[in-house]
Design a protein around this nucleic acid. Structure first.
Lengths: 289, 289
DNA sequence: TGGTCAAAATCGAATAATTCAATTTTGGCT
DNA sequence: AGCCAAAATTGAATTATTCGATTTTGACCA
């Protein structure tokens, strides 16, 4: 029999995730565990609670009365736990850190994470700049202490946090004809994704034309979402309205990209070290170990 | 390396206990673990926190700055966790339960526990009576659904929750002369401890006289604490002002006693079952498993 | 009704984490 | 310097957790 008095934070986190996603399988994917593990965790949790917390059906998972009551506690405990960890880790960390982030992450993933960092690290002066990887990397050590950059998978420089599939994307409401030169919406040169896209099309012998070229990711994606052109995105940061396309649609494969954190040479200050490990933990995929 | 994102509630509980007792060794005893386990737990916790939380010295253990900040969170998380468990386990439990408790526990250990039960089990009508084990047991099934009783160790009836050493006790401020008939303060007959005391003295061939006899434990203990007489207590419930004495003082050994929970025959109601397992968990010594 | 299908449960084996007992190290005090 | 109580360490044994493979479940539909 398992411990009856102490619920692992893991179990609470799984429970909260299941309640949000209404599915063991989706929760398992979100938490980088297998479905069988999640199922076992729920059994353990229900055993400790002495109550059925989730009502399962092949369609969806719903909370029981007891589950609803418990969910509030579980959320509060997990939140308090995470806050405690942020705060205690921030203890004694002060100074200034200048972070540079490539544009797409600055919109999708980072705001929430940076806000959390700022909230707990009250003695740290945080300065964030966004731009294109190429420019940012050039200024590493000069203008920036830390650069979060995209690079070709396998590059391996910096601390690699995750790998993202690169994919063609078009509007999910319009069918794009693949006959004739493909209309493209791409970031202005020089840009890695632009180069990848054009190289891949050329190698595949497909015709193309640049219909839209901008230095704003938002504008490029909006253009694609409007149905006028094809573009290239990281699979993980695709905005709603875009449909991902691949080789099954007759388009050439694209190299995967990796997200890496680059630290300025020399001994980093306390603030830079703290932000670096904070970002690494928050962004790294798979499970923490 | 251990998980960096999830702190086990166990670690938090140990940390809180150490902070309160200012000692790894005492915390280990209080939590039914070894000192080495506690030490390892603290190392794990500090590794996750990335900070030294406790400043150790052979004299006492003190909190660091980070430790103080963290202690508040740890307390809140543990409290929330325990409340969550109480509440979810109480879900759907209603009805009436009549509990009888022997007098000494009614003062020392139970009030807090019963208050916790009442707070979480809002739909349960709880009635508590105190008295002497003998009377209470006679009314089990009639007036009471549940009786918490003291019995001779090894008796084994009911669900045994813990064993307590029985000890002679006298004032810690006065030296009692052991020459001549020993002045005793005891509960009125019939009472188990009274019988044990007199039998033990008789067998040892020691003289005695009853100086004070009352049906109030409080009065008996007060009399002993005032230095006028010797009495007999459970080692675990001795009030301040009393000093425990044993065979090393020339007094005869006394039988140990066990605390047991007796359930009325027949199928117990939901309220009785809930209170029963609640008490068992709260009072049982050693670790929960 | 019975078949189907996606999702959850179960099972056995491998892995990982926790605990303990024994011993060593530490830090303050005399 | 030496002593002592308390914490740290170490290695072995135990216990718990996770995974992959498979089976079972239950809502829905023909």
């Amino acid at each position: 029999m398992t411990a009856l008095r102490n619920i692992d934070i893991d179990l609470l986190r799984s429970f909260v995730t299941i309640a949000e996603l209404r599915s063991f399988t989706r929760a398992a994917a979100a938490l980088s565990r297998t479905q069988s593990t999640i199922s076992t965790q729920v059994r353990r949790l229900e055993e400790i609670a002495g109550q059925t917390l989730l009502r399962r059906s092949p369609q969806e998972v719903l909370l029981t009365r007891a589950g609803e009551d418990f969910l509030g506690y579980a959320r509060r405990i997990v939140a308090l736990h995470d806050e405690a960890l942020d705060v205690v880790r921030a203890q004694g960390v002060s100074g200034r850190v200048r972070l540079a982030v490539m544009d797409d992450y600055a919109t999708i993933v980072l705001p929430e994470t940076l806000a959390r960092f700022a909230r707990s690290h009250t003695e740290v002066e945080l300065e964030v700049t966004t731009g294109f990887t190429r420019d940012l990397m050039n200024a590493l050590g000069e203008e920036f202490d830390l650069v979060l950059a995209t690079q070709r998978a396998g590059d391996g420089r910096g601390e690699v946090l995750r790998t993202e599939r690169t994919a063609w994307a078009a509007s999910d409401r319009h069918d794009l004809s693949l006959a004739g030169p493909l209309p493209l919406a791409l970031l202005k040169a020089p840009n890695m994704y632009r180069e990848w896209a054009l190289e891949a099309l050329n190698e595949a012998g497909l015709g193309w034309r640049i219909l839209f070229s901008s230095s704003s990711i938002g504008a490029v994606e909006a253009m694609a979402a409007a149905g006028a052109a094809l573009t290239v995105v990281k699979a993980g940061t695709a905005r709603p309205g875009l449909r991902l396309l691949g080789t099954e649609h007759g388009l050439p494969a694209l190299p995967a990209s990796e997200i890496a954190l680059h630290l300025a040479p020399g001994r980093p200050g306390a603030a830079a070290r703290a932000l670096s490990s904070f970002l690494a933990e928050a962004l790294r995929e798979g499970r923490e170990s």
